[in-house]
Amino acid sequence: MNPASPAAAMTNWQAFLFTFFDAKTMATYAPKIAQGFLLTVELAILIVISGLALGLFLAVVRSFRIRPLNWLIVFAVDLFRALPPLVIIVFFYFGLPVVGLGFEGFTTTWLALTLVLAAFAEEIFWAGILAVPKGQWEAARSTGLGFLGTLGWVVLPQAIRMTIPPLTNRTIAITKGTALGSVVAVAEILSTAQSAMAESANPSPLTLGAIAYIILFVPVVIAGRWIETRFAWKR
């Protein structure tokens, strides 16, 4: 038995703790990261609301089946599903000012992720609308409900219920994209953590940022898991 080795391991462990979990650095930067946390939450909530609303609106417009309009919707949806969100953000932030259309980072991130979420949501809502059996339309129409009445009272409630599991997962995935805001100077969690790390020359703020993301998203992912089983459609 070499008495030196446990002691050496102890020092390594302490060094690791000091590097990644330095209490003093963490305490210094905790308030800033908390602010970043709130900004992330704010950004995420705005994206979820506007993205889902726009997606639903587009799906409803598409159900009128006006040919040229639908081509346009399908193209826009495909575009925002195919492009990496960071490319869209970079394009809005660095590309548009060239023609005098500049947004600040927060607006850019919100707009880009809203469009991405709306594209995915439109596709999911539309699939849900199509999946409601034709008989439901016929039954409602036979009682005198009009097109919009049928859509609103009979078809959409069923379509939305069917689409809750895929929609939840997609929404979670896209709200995680708020971290991309760090690239365009949005002071959200990652960005605050990174600048704090640079300032203190210690990665503990990054650890703190990671913990903030765990606090924010682990419950959301678990809730998503639960929703997936809860809303499995039974007929």
Partner: peptide, 11 residues
């Protein structure tokens, strides 16, 4: 109108 498959609103 009454349909073969009832077409009740499941929700």
């Amino acid at each position: 109108m009454v349909f073969q498959n009832f077409n009740l609103y499941p929700h």
